[in-house]
Amino acid sequence: MNFLNVFSKEMTEQWRTYRLLIVMAVMAVFGLASPLLAKLTPEILKSMPGLPPGLADAIPVPTIADAVSQYVKNMSQFGILLALLLSMGSVAQEKERGTATMMLTHPVSRLNFLLSKFFALAVTFLISLSMAALGCWYYTLLLFKAMPWDSFLAMNGLMLLAFLVYVAVSIFCSTLANSQGAAAGLAFGALVVIAGVGALPRIGEYFPGQLFNWGASLMLGTSTTAWPALWVSIGVIIVALLGAWQILNRQEL
C-alpha cells in the first residue's frame, strides 16, 4: 500500500537535497582517482630525492591489478563511510523533526516508511557506484588497458551488496535512536564492531568485508569466493530491516 508513492517521494528528496548529486560526484572522483593513484604512486616514489640507488629499479611497474586493488580499497573505505553518513539520519531525522508523526497519520504503513527509505538509498548507491565504476574503468583503459567487463561488473555488484548491508544496519540504528546524534553514535559503533570482528580470522569469513576481497579476486583471476559472507550479508539486510520495522511498530512517535 503506497510503497511506490513514498518511494518516489524519497527519491525526489535524495535529488532535491542534492544528496544524490553529491554522492554521485564523490564516488565518480574516487573511481577516477583509483587507477590514477595506482599509476602515479610508483612514479612519485621514484622521483623522491634521497632515494638509495638501485631501489628505484626495485619499485615494480604498476599493473592493472594495482588499479583494481586501489579501487577496492577506496570503495571499502569511503563507500562504506558514505553509506553510513547518508543512511544514519534517515529515520531519526524524521522522528526528531516530527515529519514521521505527520506522515503516519496518513495512509503510510511503518513497513513502507522504512522500505521506501532503504530502496531509495539502494538506488542512490546503485547510481553512484555506477559512476565510480565508469570512472575507474575509463581511466584504467587510458592508463593501463581494458578490464574484463563481466568480472568488473560482478565485483561492483558484490560491493553494492556490501554497501547495502551498511545502509540497512544504519537504518536500523536510526530507527532505534531517538535523535540524530544518538543514531550517528550507534551507526559508527556498529561500523567499528563489524570492521573489528570482520578482521578476526575465522568469523571474518562471514562478514561483508569479504565481499570486497571476493570482488578483487574475481578481477585478479584468483579463485577465492565468499559465499558464506554473501548469504550472511543478505540475511543481515533482511534482519536489520525487519528488526527496524518491529522496533518502529512499538515506538510511539
Partner: peptide, 24 residues
C-alpha cells in the same frame, strides 16, 4: 498537530498533492 512540520524542500502544492496520492 500542535506544531505541523513538513519536508522543507517541498512546495505546498507538492505536499498537498503527495498527501492526495497517499489517499488514492
Amino acid at each position: 498537530p500542535e506544531e505541523p512540520v513538513f519536508y522543507p524542500w517541498m512546495t505546498p502544492r507538492e505536499f498537498l498533492d503527495y498527501i492526495g496520492r497517499l489517499h488514492g
